[in-house]
Simulated scan of single mutants.
Amino acid sequence: MANPVRPGQRRLILLLAVGFAVLTALVGVGVYGLLLAPDPTTPAPAAEPRRPAGPSPEPDSTASSLSLPPILATADAEAFARAASHALINWDTATHFEPSDYAQVIIDAGDPSGMETAALASDVRSYLPTADAWAKLRAYGTRQWLTIDEAFIPASWSEALDQAADGQLLPGTIAYTVTGTRHRAGIVGTQAQETSRPVSFTLFIACEPSFEDCRLLRLSEVDNPLR
Rank of each mutant, 00 (worst) to 15 (best):
A151K: 00
I174P: 07
P225A: 04
H96E: 13
F211A: 15
A46D: 10
A133E: 14
Q168W: 06
A47M: 11
H183P: 01
A2W: 04
E212S: 15
Y32M: 15
T177V: 06
D76A: 15
L203Q: 06
H86R: 04
S61M: 06
A17G: 08
A21R: 02
M115S: 15
R11Y: 09
D108Q: 10
L161I: 10
L169Y: 02
P209N: 08
T147Y: 04
V188A: 11
L88V: 03
M115R: 14
A53G: 14
T147C: 05
T177K: 05
A192E: 12
A44N: 01
T42D: 07
H183Q: 10
S56C: 05
A206H: 02
D92K: 00
G8K: 10
P112T: 14
L217S: 04
L72E: 08
S122W: 02
A84D: 02
A135F: 00
P49I: 14
R50H: 06
Y176R: 10
P198A: 09
T177G: 06
L216F: 05
F80N: 09
F20A: 15
F80D: 09
S220Y: 01
T147R: 10
L36C: 02
A131K: 04
A53K: 05
P55D: 06
Q163C: 09
H86L: 10
S113Y: 07
T173P: 10
E212Y: 12
R138F: 09
I106M: 14
P225Y: 04
R143N: 07
S156P: 01
E116S: 14
S220I: 02
